[in-house]
Write a protein that binds this DNA or RNA. Sequence first.
DNA 1: GATGAATGAGAATTCATTCAT
DNA 2: AATGAATGAATTCTCATTCAT
Lengths: 194, 194, 194, 194
Amino acid sequence: MTKKISALATQQRERILSAAKQCFVETGLARTTMRDIAGQADMSLGNIYRYFKNKEALIETFIEVDNQEVGEAFELLDSAKNFKVILQEIGSEFIKEIANKSELLVYTDILSEALRNEKVLSIVTLDHGERMLAKSLEKAQKEGRIQLSLPVDTAALAIIAFIENAALKCIINKKYSVRTAKKQFKQYLDLIAD
Amino acid sequence: MTKKISALATQQRERILSAAKQCFVETGLARTTMRDIAGQADMSLGNIYRYFKNKEALIETFIEVDNQEVGEAFELLDSAKNFKVILQEIGSEFIKEIANKSELLVYTDILSEALRNEKVLSIVTLDHGERMLAKSLEKAQKEGRIQLSLPVDTAALAIIAFIENAALKCIINKKYSVRTAKKQFKQYLDLIAD
Amino acid sequence: MTKKISALATQQRERILSAAKQCFVETGLARTTMRDIAGQADMSLGNIYRYFKNKEALIETFIEVDNQEVGEAFELLDSAKNFKVILQEIGSEFIKEIANKSELLVYTDILSEALRNEKVLSIVTLDHGERMLAKSLEKAQKEGRIQLSLPVDTAALAIIAFIENAALKCIINKKYSVRTAKKQFKQYLDLIAD
Amino acid sequence: MTKKISALATQQRERILSAAKQCFVETGLARTTMRDIAGQADMSLGNIYRYFKNKEALIETFIEVDNQEVGEAFELLDSAKNFKVILQEIGSEFIKEIANKSELLVYTDILSEALRNEKVLSIVTLDHGERMLAKSLEKAQKEGRIQLSLPVDTAALAIIAFIENAALKCIINKKYSVRTAKKQFKQYLDLIAD
DNA sequence: GATGAATGAGAATTCATTCAT
DNA sequence: AATGAATGAATTCTCATTCAT
């Protein structure tokens, strides 16, 4: 019975967090109301408080969960034969996805939150992707699947930075297309890795 | 007399905007209240409305003004004899400054606002620094003061991206020091420019 | 269940509108605050906004509802055998009621509002009573229940005008009693109808 | 010197009251701000308080002054040879003028104010016109210049009431023209006076 | 006398949170 | 478990009034 309850609880929490994400993307962390989330989750306002102590707790949990999803793509790299090609594809995919705005919207808010809230900062690993990439790069270099013209850490930072800023530029600057961004990323990668 | 009056007005607006900046750094754009700003500016709440129609107008003006201050540093480059050295110094300076948090804090919020608000997006030039750098790089390359291993645009994007992300990492990751960031930036620059 | 819920909602809306009326009578449309209404309705301020989007919507609804109540008395006339006697009684009743002030107080404010607000003007039918009376007079004249010394429209206008101004005079001029007003109305009616 | 000062004072008070009237017509008594009035009078906000203790006092003075202007037209009647013709013209003129809205707008607000504020009620003579008309009618009847089918008081009330309501109807009901109103007033007058 | 900057007391409105059902 | 009505504190904004210059 306790199991059953906790299964429902888990399911409900997921439902709420998923609804929250949609709201956060649309309205931003700070401006999203509990009513918005309840409406999106198609449940009553009061019921949310059964699963989350308050808005703060909900946001913290959301950030925690959301953070885990990032960086999973990089796992592909570890088994990649043609590392550089895969890396380029992943980067291009990221640029496209981020430029699609919704991911970035929430990321920005989480960052803003984390910068001001130690507790949140300790929960999230904002450089999660970078760390995973660094690991993959190191392994690949050891195994001779790639040659880097920069130390591993610097390279990982450089690559992630380029991807993120190129994507952001796509959103900000209407004259800058995803296509150009991808092309520039290719040039860039050619300089860094071989 | 009109001069005097408008001088006061200008001064008061600056006082308010400066107070606002402090509040925005501490509390974030969205969570800062008009009362906070009034308190910080050491004036009555109502008086703020003499100088700004409403909160939205205040924020827009703030973003506009704040934006103008960015990128001024890059002007040094145009007369630099040893371009690369100056660029490295500017980058290091930026990393240090951004890592000091307050600049980034506000930048993040402005970004968040801009991504959701067309009007704000049209006011700010979020890639202001990048554009200025691109121009300087182009001029320097023509004049033979620098050699780039990437096209000018790509290089500018790459450099700014590295600076910003390195700075962010300083804040986020306590194990990553400003010193390391500066060192990595130097390596990085060596790869891109000669 | 939906029934129950909407029943509560309807009941609450009525409670609020009723409280609003009392406030409007006492303080006037423009000077009544939402807090006043909440207090009078014995509920929290915030709760009013569950039932009315904002003050404007509340006022509009109030005016609409209040308007419907006017003119119902005239329905009696259509089945009246002794039309003139009934008309005289209705008029006397109106004078008494209006002179009781509260009706007139709100009417005046609605008028003021309507004269400056097209939307309100389109909602209310300020000459509702007059129109109903005109219809009744026409019918009664056709059926020979009354003889008018003026065209129907002019008569209806004249009668309503007299009632309203006599009532107003009762309030304004302490030397002018409701009794006198009624007496004068009788004289007046004798001139217009037979 | 005192004289000079008081001359200026009088002039300034008139300027303010005149500005106030325009504001009241446009925005209503309750919604007009002191700043509005200052702007309209083309003087500083603070200066108004030199001439009027506060807003309430200003409004009271305004009402008092405004009231005196009403009813002057009726003075023509006392010397009129063809009383009924002149009366008809005056009525028509009133209908036209009131239907022009601005007079009525302020009158409505004054009425609203008077009904709730004993002090104001004692200041204004809302039935000023009616009283003057009653006097004129009495005199004219004595002198045989007119024959009334109603007692003087009732007639005066009836005539004023008709004029006011007809004018109001012109504003409220777009299908009802000033022309029709005038025509109906003529019919009406024929019934009451000879 | 005149100015208009500044103040402070509300006013409308929103929203996280609680609680009876 | 779930609902959503109700609360009350906080927020933006307005405006009569005061006061230093």
